[in-house]
Computed example of a mutant assay.
Amino acid sequence: MELKQVIIAHKARDQDSQRQAEKCARELEKLGCKVLMGPSGPKDNPYPVFLASAGEPIDLAIILGGDGTALGAARQLSPEGIPILAINVGGHLGFLTESYEVLEDTQTIWQRLQGDRYAVQRRMMLQATLYEGNRTNREPMSDVFFALNEMCVKPAAIDRTPVSVLEMEVDGEIVDQYHGDGLIVATPTGSTGYTVSANGPLLHPGMDAIVVTPICPMSLSSRSIVLPPGSTVSIWPLADHDLSTKLWLDGVHGTAIWPGQRVDVSMANCVAEFIILRENYSYFRTLRDKLQWAGARIHYTNNHRNGYSSP
C-alpha cells in the first residue's frame, strides 16, 4: 500500500484519541505522506471536507475511536473505496477495531502497511432510498443512504414513545404488517448490534444476507427473517398521524418518512474494507470476548480435541 495521502479521524472530545491522532500524523508526515485530520462524532462529520479537498486519491483512513466512529467512517468512505484501519481508542466493545495496544509500536504499523503485510476484511453494507407513491413511480425522492450495521425505521418524539404501524414488502410482495416500536434491517455485521438486542440471529460477517427484525412487536408471531442478499426490503409507514417515522442509519438520524412514502433497503453497491493487522484474528474469539460468553455453568475439559481418548 502506498501512503501518499491518508485520513486520520479521531473520536470527538476524547483527549487520548486526539493525542494519538496527532502522533500518527507527525510520523506519517515524516514519511512524506499528506495527512487530513479532524474529529468525528455525532456533531462532527469531517469526511465531506476531506473528500472535497483531496487533490489526489486517498490511500487509507485511520480511525481512532470506538465502533461508532468506525461506523461513521464506513458510511462516508466505503462508497469511495477507501480502506479503513480502525483502532479502539476511547471505545467500549470494539467489534470493528484493532486493539489499543497496536499503537505502542506505530512504526511497525507503517512498515506493515507499506509492505502489504496485512489482511483486508470486506463487509457487506446496506443502501436505502425513499420513493413517493406506488411502485410505478421509480423516481427517487432522496439521496442514497448507506449503513454498515443496520437501517432502522421507527418513530421518534420528544414527549412520548410513539408506536408505529409498518408494512413490509420483499421484492414487491407483502410479508406482514408490524405494530410495535419499529423494524431493523441489518447486515451480518450488524447482527451483533441493535439486532441482537431485539432477539435477532447472529450471522457471520463473511456471508452476505439481510436480516429483518421487529422491535417489540405486539404480535407474538412476529419473528426475525433472514433474506438473500439480492432482496429489496420495502417499508411503508401506516397510521402515522404525528408524522414521526424516521430512517436511522447505524443509530444516526437519516431522514423522515411520511405516509405515502416508502423506503427501499437493499445490499449496497459497495463494501466496507477493514484492514486487519492481527495475525490470529478470529471472529468467534471476538464473540466470546465481546459478548462474554461463559458457556456451561460446569466446565468440562475436551480431551478429545487434544488427541486423548479415555479408556
Rank of each mutant, 00 (worst) to 15 (best):
K4Q: 15
I8R: 01
K11F: 04
D14K: 05
D16E: 14
L31R: 14
G32N: 07
V35L: 08
V35Y: 04
M37E: 02
G38P: 09
G41L: 00
K43D: 13
D44V: 04
N45T: 07
V49N: 11
F50E: 00
A52N: 11
A54S: 09
I58H: 07
L60D: 06
I62G: 04
G66Q: 05
T69V: 03
L71I: 01
L71P: 02
A73D: 02
A74I: 00
E80G: 08
N88A: 07
L93M: 15
G94C: 09
L96P: 01
L103D: 01
E104P: 01
Q111N: 09
R112N: 14
Q114E: 13
R117N: 14
Y118F: 15
A119Q: 15
V120E: 15
L130R: 00
Y131K: 06
E132M: 11
R135L: 14
T136Y: 15
R138Q: 14
M141I: 15
F146Y: 15
A147D: 00
L148N: 05
L148M: 13
N149L: 05
C152S: 12
C152Q: 06
V153H: 05
P155E: 01
A157L: 14
I158L: 14
T161H: 10
T161I: 14
P162S: 04
V163C: 04
M168E: 08
E169K: 11
G172C: 08
G180H: 04
T189H: 09
S197C: 11
N199T: 10
M207P: 11
D208I: 05
I210C: 05
V211N: 11
M218W: 09
S221T: 15
S224I: 07
V233F: 05
A239L: 10
L243E: 12
L243N: 14
S244F: 08
K246A: 06
L247R: 02
G251P: 06
G254Q: 02
G254I: 04
A256T: 13
P259C: 10
P259Y: 03
G260N: 08
G260M: 10
R262E: 07
V265A: 03
N269G: 12
C270L: 05
C270D: 01
C270E: 00
A272V: 04
L277N: 02
L277Q: 03
R278K: 14
Y283I: 07
L287Q: 02
Q292Y: 10
A294V: 09
G295K: 08
I298D: 10
I298Y: 10
T301D: 10
N302K: 11
N306V: 10
